[in-house]
Computed example of a mutant assay.
Amino acid sequence: MSEIQWEEPFCGEGNSCFRIGVDELGNAYIAVRGQEDRFVMDSRDALRTMILDIKAGKADHLLQ
Score class of each variant (00 low, 15 high):
Asn15His: 05
Ser16Val: 06
Ser16Ile: 07
Ser16Lys: 09
Cys17Ile: 08
Cys17Arg: 06
Cys17Ser: 05
Cys17Leu: 10
Phe18Asp: 03
Phe18Trp: 12
Phe18Cys: 02
Arg19Ala: 12
Arg19Phe: 07
Arg19Thr: 15
Ile20Cys: 10
Ile20Gln: 14
Ile20Thr: 15
Gly21His: 12
Val22Phe: 08
Val22Asp: 08
Val22Thr: 14
Val22Arg: 13
Asp23Ile: 11
Asp23Trp: 08
Leu25Ser: 14
Leu25Asp: 15
Gly26Pro: 02
Gly26Glu: 01
Gly26Cys: 02
Gly26Ser: 02
Ala28Val: 02
Ala28Ser: 11
Tyr29Trp: 04
Ile30Arg: 00
Ile30Leu: 03
Ala31Glu: 01
Ala31Arg: 00
Val32Trp: 01
Val32Arg: 03
Val32Phe: 01
Val32Asn: 00
Arg33Thr: 15
Arg33Gln: 14
Arg33Gly: 00
Arg33Met: 06
Gly34Pro: 09
Gly34Asn: 07
Gly34Phe: 07
Gln35Asn: 09
Gln35Ser: 05
Gln35Lys: 08
Gln35Trp: 08
Asp37Tyr: 05
Asp37Leu: 06
Asp37Val: 05
Arg38Gln: 09
Arg38Thr: 04
Phe39Ala: 05
Phe39Ile: 02
Phe39His: 06
Val40Leu: 06
Met41Glu: 12
Asp42Ile: 02
Ser43Pro: 05
Arg44Asn: 07
Asp45Met: 09
Asp45Tyr: 04
Asp45Ile: 05
Ala46Ile: 04
Ala46Thr: 10
Leu47His: 07
Arg48Gly: 04
Arg48Glu: 11
Arg48Pro: 00
Thr49Trp: 05
Thr49Ile: 04
Thr49His: 02
Met50His: 06
Met50Glu: 03
Met50Phe: 15
Ile51Phe: 13
Ile51Gln: 12
Leu52Met: 13
Leu52Cys: 06
Leu52Lys: 15
Asp53Met: 12
Asp53Gly: 11
Asp53Leu: 12
Ile54Asp: 12
Ile54Pro: 00
Ile54His: 14
